[in-house]
Design a binder for these strands. Structure first.
Lengths: 215, 215
DNA sequence: CCAATATCACCCACTTTGGGTGAGTAGCAA
DNA sequence: TTGCTACTCACCCAAAGTGGGTGATATTGG
């Protein structure tokens, strides 16, 4: 599909943003190009969800901090109504937790609000073309979330054991998989607990994941 | 830092790519701009790693499919030698497994090889500025990896229970957390096993993660 | 109304888990 | 050489966890 095709069938866009100034700004900005058709704008998720089947947006620009239902819930419900809807989060918040919650909820893009106006249009085209538009800092966060902490107190073997424990395997399972005795696995786990200063599987996994000793 | 600063201190770049044509092409292309300084090019990881402390590259463009050590291992070892090195994978492979293995190994960017030459330069600036340059399709894969399967056979409550089980919690832990009896948790788990056609925690978690019923 | 969901109970047997203590081997670095 | 760490294995114990079976009740949405 070429960009010019959108002149015949402009991309249907809804905006959910409680700040009226920003909302109208985005709306005017996007409507400047005939490739976009801002079909509706809302100040909260409730109204947006109520009209979603009428508006039939292809792309939604969604704020996170909203009166009433927050954007995360809004994304979840919107995706449940129509999984094909592409949601781009546009927010000032770049707190790690929010970013990952939004992506888990179904956001397909995430922009921090200081985006130059050109980026907005680019992002919309990108998500329509199967991409995942993200601000620089967000992309880095997302990629970093895959990477492990290089300053783990755990030895290679211990990390291996803990990784298998994280998959829900029992000591015996792990022993078989690593071709060692169950007693050896037990010793590794005792040492892991000692190093992480914990006294149970759940605590160890929580700490190890938080500190990114395991993925 | 402004782009113009790189005229005084050009960005030091190493290339690891076994196809000599591509390698030389990239090298010539990047050296066309005085902001870049391609300090070395290699056809395999072994040679690259041997000279890494001499070359002192800030950015490495790394192929995955290489004779001898593959790119994934290469990234791991390079990051172990100098964690500050920024690695951008440049490859034709966009197999899910490889993408995530590369990111876990420490890659900070991932481009599929049909990148227009302009993108290469942009990507290098982006990674130096704390971003994570990715091709459209790769970014989508990465974002999609956070999202759950909307066609889960599990009920909301069952998913909740399984999610806690994945954290290594015991039935009793889960019961407390959900304010129900342990017996109720046991029933949920029995139903989960039945639905997923498995007979143990490890099997259930494996299947549920593979099918993305839980994260 | 029926099916699915969520809740709880009691049976049983086996395994798992966490903690304690001790000990041998190997490799590496001061 | 002497430590240190890592990796391996063994045996003790008691409590808790796990998987499977069967049953029940209440609520809810299509």
């Amino acid at each position: 599909m070429k960009d010019s095709d959108f002149l015949i069938n402009p991309i249907r866009i809804s905006l959910v943003e409680d700040d009226e100034i920003i909302r109208e700004g985005f709306s005017v900005l996007l409507n400047q190009t005939p490739k976009f058709n801002v079909v509706s704008t809302y100040g909260n998720c409730e109204d947006f969800l109520k009209n979603i089947n009428n508006d039939k947006p292809q792309v939604v620009l969604m704020d996170i901090e909203l009166p009433g239902m927050n954007g995360i819930e809004g994304i979840e419900k919107a995706k449940k109504i129509n999984p094909k809807i592409q949601v781009i989060v546009v927010t000032v918040y770049e707190n790690d937790d929010l970013v990952f919650k939004a992506l888990c909820a179904g956001a397909g893009g995430y922009l921090t609000k200081n985006v130059p106006s050109q980026y907005l249009s680019d992002a919309i085209f990108e998500i329509i073309n199967g991409g995942a538009p993200m601000s620089t800092n967000i992309a880095r966060k997302v990629v970093a979330s895959f990477q492990k902490n290089h300053h783990s107190p755990l030895s290679a073997r211990e990390t291996e054991v803990l990784e298998l424990l994280a998959k829900g395997k029992s000591y015996s399972n792990i022993a078989e998989e690593l071709f060692v005795e169950k007693e050896t696995v037990r010793t590794h786990i005792k040492n892991i607990y000692w190093k992480l200063e914990v006294h149970s599987k759940a605590e160890a996994l929580e700490k190890a994941k938080k500190e990114k000793y395991i993925s």
